[in-house]
């Protein structure tokens, strides 16, 4: 158990007893959790930043779990969801899984299944978060580039030679070389291939030849 573990599992179930038992089980396996009786409570609370997943009862008062899943997605809240239900049918399961659910469990569920699903959900969220953090940093680096460096970068990633770039921009080949080196350094790219990959993630438009 790591002290700096900031992972958290959210639970939404209208049954207090189910909520308490899941929370207790997660606690026994060293996982932090927070539980809510309604979807609204969950939306209102201030959620700590860190890898998280949601254990969601399909049959909630006032709102259907599947509808809530869509609402979260529409709001850009991409938290992995593990559905639990008292009585699930195949169409319901298919719909939930198609919408990106981690798992669909029927009560009473196996301890192992729940814990595996929670683990999977947390891992998936961690990966997503890392990706997003990387992307944010890349964007930051890209923002730090001057207008000319961005121009040069997009020409480089589209495969143009220094000579061609210089002709295009009307400067000397030496100047292009310096600007290119600066852009690579600012972007922390070790090679042109790495720069191309970053441009792809940042959706940088490639220059027309």
């Amino acid at each position: 158990m790591m002290a700096d573990d900031n992972r958290i599992v959210f639970i939404i179930d209208d049954d207090a007893s189910v909520r308490a038992s899941i929370q207790d089980l997660l606690e026994a396996t060293g996982l932090r959790s927070e539980s809510f009786g309604t979807a609204e409570e969950f939306l209102r609370c201030k959620r700590p930043d860190g890898p998280s997943c949601l254990v969601l009862d399909v049959k909630l008062p006032g709102v259907n779990g599947l509808d809530f899943q869509r609402r979260l997605a529409d709001a850009g809240l991409r938290i992995p969801i593990i559905f639990i239900t008292g009585y699930g049918d195949i169409p319901m399961t298919v719909k939930a899984m198609k919408s990106g659910a981690v798992e669909f469990l029927t009560k009473p569920f196996q301890e192992r299944d729940l814990l595996d699903a929670v683990q999977q959900g947390l891992d998936r969220d961690r990966a997503t978060r890392e990706e997003q953090a990387n992307l944010a940093e890349l964007r930051q680096r890209y923002e730090a580039l001057t207008a000319r460096e961005r121009e040069v970068m997009s020409m480089v990633v589209s495969g143009m030679l220094n000579k061609q770039i210089a002709a295009e921009l009307g400067t000397s080949e030496v100047t292009v070389k310096i600007q290119r080196g600066r852009a690579m350094k600012k972007m922390k790219a070790g090679s042109v291939a790495e720069l191309v990959k970053m441009a792809g993630l940042l959706d940088v438009p490639s220059a027309e030849k």
């Binding site: 049954d15 007893s17 189910v18 308490a20 038992s21 899941i22 207790d24 089980l25 606690e27 026994a28 396996t29 049959k59 639990i84 239900t85 008292g86 009585y87 029927t106 009560k107 009473p108 569920f109 301890e111 729940l114």
Partner: peptide, 28 residues
Amino acid sequence: TASLAHEVNQPIAAAVTSANSCIRWLDA
């Protein structure tokens, strides 16, 4: 059957889960 299952499964699920965590607390 659906509503019956849902009603009854709720406390059963809670009990099973609690039993699991009970074992874990004892096995720690």
